[in-house]
């Protein structure tokens, strides 16, 4: 107790203001999310009456049950999950392997490969020619439109290559003397030493795949292949329209029906966000490092 008081006396007014300010900042970030969470756990029609600030007024898990009973939404989660897992694995392994190959200074044609990639960072054919490419490749309305076009990213390749090149060469060289091939060295020596960059890239790719809604908007017509974000996007667009309807005073019936589903919408969003929110604090120390590597070379 005494110790604490002494420390408090050492704090300047600025320190106290700063600590309180940061507290308010965290509140500003967390409270809106908490609000969403309690609305999602409150009975729908009751939540629509407003006035819920700290705790659900009529606690209910009905909204979540409604989400889990909805086949379309469940299918969306399944697509998103498969996409995140397969897409992340494909992107990190392919981009990483190419980064490993291009990281060798004695690779023949290295200059050509690098130039080929750097040019793509500044020129693109634009949306319409790209759309036609996807269509001509037969990727429209297939699951692979999520995976293959996102398998490689030259910028990420540069970051991974930079990391691989920063590893001490002695280990690879001694393994080579012991008769290991390039592939063996990659899997047995380079990969185990590169977990920070692998984790960073996995997180970035995983978040991209889990959060993306637009690829499906452009290339998918079949309802069965829609990821959860695209389904949500459609729900959000509808509720945005409904909000506008209430604004211009259309019959309450329309608004009423929309408002009851507001809590279900919130429940879906909570479930959509939960996996990432639970994972990222554990990967934090990696991605901070990863961003810095990227900024040094990028």
């Amino acid at each position: 107790m005494r110790k604490k008081r002494i420390r408090l006396n050492n704090e300047t007014p600025f320190d106290i203001i700063n600590v309180v300010f940061m507290l308010l900042l965290m509140l500003l970030i967390l409270y809106p999310l908490w609000y969403v969470l309690i609305i999602s756990f409150n009975e729908g029609r009751d939540a629509a009456r407003g006035g819920i600030y700290f705790w659900p007024r009529m606690f209910s898990t009905a909204n979540y049950l409604a989400v889990f009973k909805n086949g379309k939404i469940l299918q969306g989660f399944f697509i998103s999950g498969s996409r995140a897992i397969i897409g992340t694995f494909a992107a990190v392994s392919f981009t990483g392997m190419v980064g490993y190959a291009l990281g060798h200074s004695h690779l023949m044609g290295r200059r050509f490969y690098m130039t080929l990639g750097i040019i793509t960072m500044f020129f693109s054919g634009g949306l319409i020619p790209y759309y036609m490419l996807i269509r001509n490749l037969g990727l429209r309305n297939t699951f692979w439109v999520y995976i293959i076009p996102a398998m490689f990213n030259f910028y990420n390749m540069l970051i991974m290559m930079t990391f691989f090149r920063s590893l001490p060469k002695e280990m690879s060289e001694s393994a080579q003397i012991d008769g290991a091939g390039y592939i063996g060295i990659f899997f047995r020596i380079v990969l185990p030493l590169s977990m920070p960059i692998i984790a960073t890239m996995a997180l970035f790719n995983g978040v991209y795949h889990w959060n993306d809604y637009f690829v499906a908007v452009l290339y998918i017509d079949s309802e069965k292949l829609l990821p959860i974000q695209t389904i949500l996007f459609k729900i959000v667009a509808e509720s945005s329209a409904a909000n506008m309807l209430t604004q211009i005073n259309l019959p309450d019936v329309v608004a009423q029906r929309q408002i009851t589903s507001e809590s279900v919408k919130m429940a879906t969003m909570v479930i959509t966000t939960a996996p990432i929110v639970m994972v990222y604090p554990f990967l934090q120390k990696y991605f901070v490092k990863g961003i810095m590597i990227g900024s040094i070379k990028g």
Binding site: N211, L232, T273
Partner: peptide
């Protein structure tokens, strides 16, 4: 880490 779709909602 929130998607713009969720944040938009």
């Amino acid at each position: 880490f929130l998607s713009w779709v969720v944040l938009g909602g």
